[in-house]
Amino acid sequence: MDYKKMGAHVYIRVDKGDEILSSIRRVCSEMDVKSATFLGIGACDKVVVATFIPSKQNFLHHERNGMLEMISLQGNIVTNDKGELIEHAHGMFAYLKQDSGEMAYLGGHLLSAQVSYTAEIVLDTVEHGYIGHQFDPITKINVWKLEGE
């Protein structure tokens, strides 16, 4: 992995074998970034995405191995009340079905993605203030807590 701040953004190259979300957390930790948004593209060989099931207040996991083009990655990273970096990302992946040769797609809440060739991530850091987390009693999930200067 390599990264460099250029202007208002941090450009991250994630290398073969690296996991994308942990790489983003590492960059944020090393650069003392408290909150940011990110987007990216790349190629992966193992991904786990999830679908939230509101009636169960839990996620249904979907794992896929093989050649997966990461055609879209969008997310954010914030600081929780314990000072830990927490990411929330969604990804869309394309792959070739072995039995029919047709293109198929897998997307959802991204839990992990291992890079097979490279991934290119643009991190947009929050320069003034930061975004935290707070529990929302209505939806029963953590939501953004906006902290300004």
Rank of each mutant, 00 (worst) to 15 (best):
I53N: 11
V33I: 15
K82C: 02
K56E: 15
S100K: 12
H109P: 01
G83R: 09
V33P: 02
L60M: 13
L68I: 08
E19A: 14
K140Y: 04
G107L: 13
H61A: 05
L60G: 05
S116Q: 00
K97Q: 11
V78M: 07
T37D: 03
E149V: 07
T118D: 11
S22L: 08
G91K: 03
I121N: 06
L111R: 09
A113R: 04
H62E: 09
D2P: 00
M70W: 02
D124K: 08
I24G: 07
D32V: 03
G75L: 05
A43N: 09
E149G: 08
C44K: 01
I141A: 04
E102M: 14
G66C: 01
L96Y: 10
E147V: 14
E84L: 09
A50Y: 03
G129P: 09
S23H: 07
A113V: 08
K145Y: 11
K97P: 00
E147D: 06
S29Q: 11
M67F: 10
L60D: 12
G129M: 02
V33R: 06
E102Q: 14
L60S: 13
L60Y: 12
R25K: 15
Q134V: 10
V33G: 06
T139L: 07
F52Y: 15
Q74N: 11
E120C: 08
L106W: 05
G40W: 01
D45W: 12
Y11R: 09
T118K: 10
M70L: 15
S116F: 11
D32S: 14
L60Q: 13
S22N: 04
G75Q: 04
L146K: 09
M70Y: 00
C28G: 10
N76T: 13
N58P: 00
G66N: 11
E19L: 05
D124P: 00
G17A: 10
R64S: 12
L60V: 12
F52V: 08
W144N: 15
N65A: 08
P137M: 02
Q134W: 03
Y117V: 12
E120G: 06
D15R: 11
G108F: 05
S116C: 04
G107C: 12
K46Q: 06
W144V: 01
K82M: 08
V122Y: 00
P137N: 07
F38W: 10
T79P: 05
I138S: 09
R64Y: 09
Q134N: 02
Y11N: 13
K97V: 15
I138N: 14
S23N: 06
W144A: 14
M31I: 01
G75F: 01
I141K: 14
R26I: 01
Y105C: 04
T125F: 02
F93P: 10
K5C: 09
I138K: 14
A104C: 03
H109I: 06
L123G: 02
R26Y: 11
I86A: 01
I41P: 00
